[in-house]
Design a binder for these strands. Structure first.
Length: 807
RNA sequence: GCCGCGGUGGCGGAAUUGGCAGACGCAGCAGACUCAAAAUCUGCCGGUGUUAAUCACUGUAAGGGUUCAAGUCCCUUCCGCGGCACCA
C-alpha cells in the first residue's frame, strides 16, 4: 500500500518554476573559473498564434544539454529572446488597428508565459527583444559600420517584388517563384535598394566551414547555395568594332566547339552596338518582352527557347578564328557570370536546344556521344577532337593547355564565379529597424552620428504600405525632413527599413551582455563566451539566417569587434513535428496541437519526455496523443519507485552492471542527439526496478539525476522528498566505470553455417578454446556437427561463434 | 536535371557501425483485480507451416554481388523527403 501521494504535476511544476526563478538558479554568473558553455536555440518570432508543439522540441533538447552541463560543472549560458520585427505583426496590426508595438508586447507576454510553463532553464534576466530601441541601436550601429567599410551600397536593381506584401524580397525569400511568407506572386521591379556585399565573403563562408562542427547537410546546403565554380573568363572580339564580349565558362576545353554566342537581353553592350544592329527594333521588342517576365516565368519556359539574332554583328572565336553569330535570349541571365555565353551546342543541352530551334551549326569536339541526336554533356568521359592543338587530349588536360594558351595571349584569365548574390537589405515597411542614413543633395548618403543612435521608429497612426512601393515612413514628412549631419543643409532620411534578418544576425552576441550601453557587448564578455558552443535551429534557416549571421560575424571580426572568425562552433537541426494525420501542422488543416493543452492534461514533464522520446530528433515525425499517454505512464512509474525503496547507499549486486550501463548510455545519448534511446534506457532501468521490486536510495537518486534534464520538475520533487534541502540541480552528474558496464556472464550465439543454432553463457573475455570446448560438449549443438567436417571456426569474443561445416 | 537524406512489424522507432533484426514506447490480444468500467499489474504480439509450446522455413523497397557472417559494404533498379535549378 502506497504511503505517498500520487503524482500530481500541476502543483509541483508551478512550485519548482517559482523556486528556480526566486533563487535565480539559472542566472549566469560572470567571471567564473568554471569552463563556459554557451547553448543557443533560435529565438522565436512571437506570432499571434502562440507556441505550438513544434517549438519545445529544440528548446527541450538544448535544455537537456544545458542542465546536464551545469551538473557537470560548467558555467552555462542558455538565453532566450524575441525576434519580433516582421511582416505578420505589421499585417495583423493593420488589419486589427492595433499598433505593432502593442501587438508585439502582447504576443511576447503570451509566448513567455507558455515557455515558462514548460520549465526551461533559460536565464530570463538576459531576455532580449529585437524591436527594443536599446537593442536595435546596435543593429543600426553594425549597419553604419558596414556602410563605412563600403559593404552597404545603394543600387538600382530589378528586385523581387511581392505584389501581395508590397515589399521587396531577397532571393533567399523567393520560393518557387512565390513569396516565402505569403505565397503571393513575385514580379521583377526596378528599385533603388540598399544592398550588402555578402558576395565579398563568399570564399570565406565556404572555406571556414572546415573549421566548424556543423551537421553535414547544413554544410552542403550552404556550399550549394554559395555555388562556387571555377573556370575561365574569355574575351571574344566583335568584328569591325573596338568592343569585346567576355564570357565565363567552366569548360574552356570545348572552345573549339563554340559556334555562336548568346547574350542576356539586359546586356549593356546592346546599347553600345545599337548603330550596328540592323534589326534593333526587333531586338528591342525582345528586350521589352523579357523585362516583363519574372525570373520564375523565364525559367518556366525551359523547353521552348526564344531569341533574336543581332544582325550585322559577328564575333570571332579566339582559337578557331571562325566567325560566330551573336544572339540575345532570356536563357542567359545577366545576374550570373558576365551575362554572355559562348554556345557549345554539341556539349551543352541548352545550347543544343537553341541551336536546333534556330538551325545553328553543331560541332562535335568531344568524342563519346552522338551530337546529331542530343548534346553529349558527359565530356569528362570523352576525348577531344576537331580541336587543333588540343586534339586527342583528355578534357582535363585540354583545359590546362587552352587556359595557358589564352592567358599567354591576354585572351582569357582564370576566374571564380558564385551563385550567391548580394543581399537586398531594404524593405518598404514600417515594422523594422530604420536605416540610419540621410540623403543630402551635396554630400550624398551620410550616416547619422553614432551618438544619435538609436534612430527610433517614429510613433505614427498610419503604417500601411503604399501602392507605389514607397515605405510607410515616407509619408511622415517631419520625420523624413532633417538636416545633413555633414554640411547642415536640409536633407531627407532614408525611409526604407531593414529586413527581419537584421536583428537575428547578431543577437547571440547581445545575450552575453544585454544591458551594455557602450558597446554591443563588452570585450571581456565576448572573449569569455564566444563562440557559441552549440546552436540548434531549423533547416529552413540554413541559407538565410545562418549564412547572414556568419557573414555579419566575419565582418565584425574584420573590424576587431569579435575575437572569433565564426560565431557558432556546432550547429544541429531538428525535424518538424507533424499533425497526427502526418501533415504539416497548420490552422487551416485543423491539426495544430497547443502545448498548453498537453501541459494541462499531462504536465510539462510529460510533454518534455514525449518530445524527446517521439523519434529521431533530426527527422520529422507525426504527433501521437497515445504516445504522450505512454510517457505519462512512465513518469507515474518513476513516481511510484518511492514505494520500493530499501536500505542501502550503493548499487546493489543485481543492478550494479545495469546502473553503470545506463549512466553511460544516457550520458552519451544526450550528447549525440539521441534523446529517444537515452529515454528508452531509462525506461528499461525502471522496468528492472519493477522486476526486482526493491531499489536502493543510491540507485533511485542516480535515476533521478539522469532523468532530471528531461523531466526537471518531478525529479526535483522526488529529490526533495528524499530529504534533501539542496536542489537536484546542484548535484553532480554521475560517472560510470567502464569495467563495471560489462556483465560477469554473457550470452553468445552459436552459429552453424551462419545460422543460429543455440546460445551459451560464458565470461566476456573467455578464451576461444574454452568456448569451443563448451560448444562441442553441448547436446543441442552436437547434432548439427555429427558426421560433418568442420571447415572453419570464427570466434568474435562477446558476440558470436560461427562454425562452418561441410557435408 | 543536379546535390543531400532516407525506405526495417499495424504505428513511432532500436540495432555497440559487418556479428542473435525488431530494444523502448504506442496500438492490439489474453489474463488478474473489479458488481462493472477506468486505472494498475502479468503474459503474448513480423510472416508462413490449420491451434498452442517446441521446431522449421522465411523476413530490413526490388534484383544481383562480396563475406564464415549483410538492415549495415559494392553494383543495378524503383519509391519517398529536403534543397537548388536555363548558374554557362
Amino acid at each position: 500500500m502506497s504511503t505517498n501521494p500520487s503524482y500530481n504535476p500541476e502543483s509541483i511544476e508551478e512550485k519548482w518554476q517559482k523556486r528556480w526563478e526566486e533563487k535565480q538558479v539559472f542566472h549566469v554568473k560572470e567571471s567564473d573559473d568554471r569552463p563556459k558553455f554557451y547553448a543557443l536555440i533560435e529565438f522565436p518570432y512571437p506570432s499571434g498564434q502562440g507556441l505550438h508543439v513544434g517549438h519545445p522540441r529544440p528548446y527541450t533538447a538544448l535544455d537537456v544539454v544545458a542542465r546536464k552541463r551545469r551538473m557537470q560543472g560548467y558555467n552555462v549560458l542558455f538565453p532566450m529572446g524575441w525576434d519580433a520585427f516582421g511582416l505578420p505583426t505589421e499585417n495583423y496590426a493593420i488589419k486589427n488597428k492595433i499598433h505593432p508595438e502593442k501587438v508585439t508586447k502582447d504576443n511576447v507576454a503570451r509566448f513567455k508565459a507558455q515557455l515558462q510553463s514548460l520549465g526551461f532553464s533559460f536565464d530570463w534576466s538576459r531576455e532580449i527583444n529585437t524591436t527594443d530601441p536599446s537593442y536595435y541601436k546596435w543593429t543600426q550601429w553594425i549597419f553604419l559600420k558596414l556602410f563605412e567599410k563600403g559593404l552597404a551600397y545603394k543600387q538600382e536593381i530589378p528586385i523581387n517584388w511581392c505584389t501581395s506584401c508590397k515589399v521587396g524580397l531577397s532571393n533567399e525569400e523567393v520560393v518557387q517563384g512565390g513569396c516565402e511568407r505569403c505565397g503571393g506572386e513575385v514580379v521583377q521591379k526596378v528599385k533603388n535598394q540598399w544592398m550588402l556585399r555578402i558576395t565579398e565573403y563568399a570564399e570565406r563562408l565556404i572555406n571556414d566551414l572546415d573549421e566548424v562542427d556543423y551537421i553535414e547537410r547544413v554544410k552542403t546546403q550552404q556550399k550549394n547555395w554559395i555555388g562556387k565554380s571555377e573556370g575561365m573568363e574569355i574575351k571574344f572580339t566583335i568584328e569591325g568594332t573596338e568592343e569585346a564580349l567576355k564570357v565565363f565558362t567552366t569548360r574552356p576545353d570545348t572552345l573549339f566547339g563554340a559556334t555562336y554566342m548568346v547574350i542576356s537581353p539586359e546586356h549593356p553592350i546592346l546599347n553600345k552596338l545599337k548603330s550596328q544592329i540592323k534589326n534593333f527594333d526587333e531586338v528591342h521588342r525582345y528586350q521589352h518582352e523579357a523585362a516583363k517576365k519574372s525570373d520564375f516565368e523565364r525559367s518556366e519556359l525551359v523547353k521552348d527557347k526564344t531569341g533574336v539574332q543581332l544582325e550585322g554583328i559577328r564575333a570571332i572565336n579566339p582559337v578557331s578564328k571562325e566567325e560566330m553569330t551573336v544572339w540575345i535570349s532570356d536563357y542567359v541571365l545577366m545576374s550570373y557570370g558576365t551575362g554572355a555565353i559562348m554556345a557549345v551546342p554539341g556539349h551543352d543541352t541548352r545550347d543544343w536546344e537553341f541551336a536546333k530551334k534556330f538551325n545553328l551549326p553543331i560541332k562535335e569536339v568531344v568524342k563519346g556521344g552522338d551530337v546529331t541526336k542530343e548534346a553529349f554533356t558527359d565530356v569528362d568521359q570523352g576525348i577531344l577532337i576537331n580541336s587543333d592543338f588540343i586534339n586527342d587530349l583528355k578534357p582535363q588536360q585540354g583545359i590546362e593547355k587552352i587556359n595557358n594558351w589564352l592567358t599567354d595571349r591576354g585572351l582569357g584569365e582564370k576566374k571564380v564565379n558564385y551563385k550567391l548574390r548580394d543581399w537586398v537589405f531594404s524593405r518598404q515597411r514600417y515594422w523594422g529597424e530604420p536605416i540610419p542614413l540621410v540623403d543630402c543633395e551635396d554630400c550624398g548618403w551620410v550616416p547619422i552620428p553614432e551618438k544619435e543612435l538609436p534612430l527610433e521608429l517614429p510613433k505614427v497612426e498610419n503604417y500601411e504600405p503604399t501602392d507605389d512601393g514607397e515605405s510607410p515612413l515616407a509619408n511622415i514628412k517631419d520625420w523624413v525632413k532633417t538636416t545633413c549631419p555633414s554640411c547642415g543643409k536640409e536633407a531627407r532620411r532614408e525611409t526604407d527599413t531593414m529586413p527581419q534578418w537584421a536583428g537575428s544576425s547578431w543577437y547571440y552576441l547581445r545575450y552575453m551582455d544585454p544591458n551594455n550601453d557602450e558597446a554591443l557587448a563588452s570585450k571581456e564578455r565576448l572573449d569569455y563566451w564566444l563562440p557559441v558552443d552549440w546552436y540548434n535551429g531549423g533547416m529552413e534557416h540554413t541559407t538565410l539566417h545562418l549564412l547572414y549571421s556568419r557573414f555579419w560575424h566575419k565582418f565584425l571580426y574584420d573590424i576587431n569587434v569579435v575575437p572569433t572568425k565564426e560565431p557558432y562552433n556546432k550547429r544541429t537541426s531538428h525535424g518538424m513535428i507533424l499533425g497526427e494525420n502526418n501533415e504539416k501542422m497548420s490552422k487551416s488543416k485543423g491539426n495544430v496541437v497547443n502545448p498548453d493543452d498537453i501541459v494541462e492534461e499531462f504536465g510539462a514533464d510529460t510533454l518534455r519526455v514525449y518530445e524527446m522520446f517521439i523519434g529521431d530528433f533530426e527527422k520529422s515525425v507525426p504527433w501521437s496523443q497515445n504516445g504522450v499517454k505512454g510517457c505519462r505512464r512512465f513518469l507515474d512509474r518513476v513516481w511510484k519507485v518511492q514505494d520500493m525503496l530499501v536500505e542501502g547507499d550503493a548499487f546493489s549486486k543485481d543492478l550494479e552492471v545495469k546502473m553503470h550501463q545506463t549512466i553511460k548510455k544516457v550520458s552519451e545519448d544526450y550528447e549525440n542527439l539521441k534523446y529517444n534511446t537515452g529515454i528508452a534506457a531509462l525506461m528499461t532501468l525502471i522496468n528492472e526496478f519493477y522486476n526486482l521490486g526493491r531499489v536502493t536510495k543510491t540507485e533511485f537518486e542516480t535515476l533521478l539525476i539522469l532523468l532530471n534534464p528531461v523531466a526537471p520538475h518531478i525529479t526535483e520533487e522526488l529529490w526533495e522528498s528524499l530529504g534533501y534541502s539542496e536542489g537536484i540541480v546542484e548535484q553532480h552528474w554521475p560517472t560510470w566505470n567502464e569495467e563495471k558496464t560489462v556483465a560477469k556472464f554473457i550470452e553468445i550465439a552459436v552459429q552453424i553455417n551462419g545460422k543460429v543454432r543455440g546460445t551459451i553463457e560464458v565470461e566476456p573475455d573467455a578464451k576461444k578454446e574454452t568456448v569451443e570446448k563448451m560448444i562441442k560438449e553441448s547436446e543441442s549443438i552436437k547434432e548439427y556437427l555429427d558426421n560433418r567436417q568442420i571447415v572453419k571456426e570464427i570466434y568474435v569474443p562477446g558476440r558470436i561463434y560461427n562454425i562452418v561445416v561441410k557435408g
